[in-house]
Design a protein around this nucleic acid. Structure first.
Lengths: 149, 149
DNA sequence: GAGATTTAAGTTGTGCGCAACTTGATTGCG
DNA sequence: CGCAATCAAGTTGCGCACAACTTAAATCTC
């Protein structure tokens, strides 16, 4: 569609994209930090709670697959959520390797307090719905391609 | 342009974008980890080296502004780069609060070894140049808006 | 059925990211 | 001038991310 850029510019573009991604991810982190402070959650903890609110109790493995996180990250994170009284872990009886993560009543209740969060973030992005869809689409494709390579 | 989606979908879209961003950022991290292993650099260390290769010796403060990182992150990172012999730090004589970061000859030479890295990453993304531009644009706008809020 | 392989979760160690703080230098203001 | 406010860099502490490893259970294979 356009003239292909010279090599140098192309390579520059690449690291600009990576850098933008890195910066944007941390900028989101900052806004979430504020929005979640009252709930006492970090952003990754909030992601885990979203999974549990939406899909119910499930094994650590399943949470990890949904969030692209391994047990080295999830185990201590879940331990903190358990200490905070939001979650409890129970070793499965059928397969004793597996541990199922359940919401406690407090964890379930927190859902309501978390409802206004997404709107705050949405407003802070300054993007239109169209743009958000485009962004989500591109990011999804990149992640898929990168993971495959 | 399109029918506005109902509230629930809109809020869903928001956390999907945040999640995609988080996931994409980590996926890039993984690919860079492989590409930079031979150079003995992590991705954030590589970003610092890019700044020095491109703009020459400069104070910690300036590096932090370019990369959106504070001294709590940069100080130990620079110490590691110094231990690796790629960089050395010198306290400014005019303003003794400031520390200027210089490339060592080894740090300068590493530039050549790093040249093939961007192309590898570029290929791994699976996106066209158009799409990369769009992505960079959207991410830049989001970061700006989020930082301002 | 016994032994090798695979699997789920957890542990350890390293580095990044950031808040909160310390230290020492500079600037600004009365 | 003198002292407060500001500023640059560094330190500490905590949580996330991930590689490499351990442990214990399930599965596969002969």
């Amino acid at each position: 569609m356009t003239t292909l850029p010279p090599d140098a510019e192309l390579l520059r573009l690449d690291h600009q994209v990576c850098f933008s991604l890195h910066a944007a991810s941390r900028a989101f982190g900052g806004v979430y930090r504020d929005a979640l402070k009252d709930l006492g959650l970090t952003y990754p903890q909030y992601l885990v709670m979203l999974v549990l609110w939406e899909h119910g109790a499930q094994p650590v493995k399943a949470i990890g697959e949904r969030l692209r996180l391994d047990s080295g990250t999830l185990s201590p994170l879940l331990k903190r959520l358990e200490t905070a009284g939001l979650v409890h872990r129970e070793r499965s009886t059928e397969d004793e390797r597996s541990v199922t993560v359940h919401l406690t009543p407090a964890g379930d209740e927190l859902r309501e307090a978390a409802l206004p969060v997404p709107r705050r973030i949405l407003a802070a992005t300054g993007l239109t719905v169209e743009e958000l869809r485009t962004l989500r689409g591109l990011l999804g494709r990149v992640t898929g391609a990168l993971d495959a390579s």
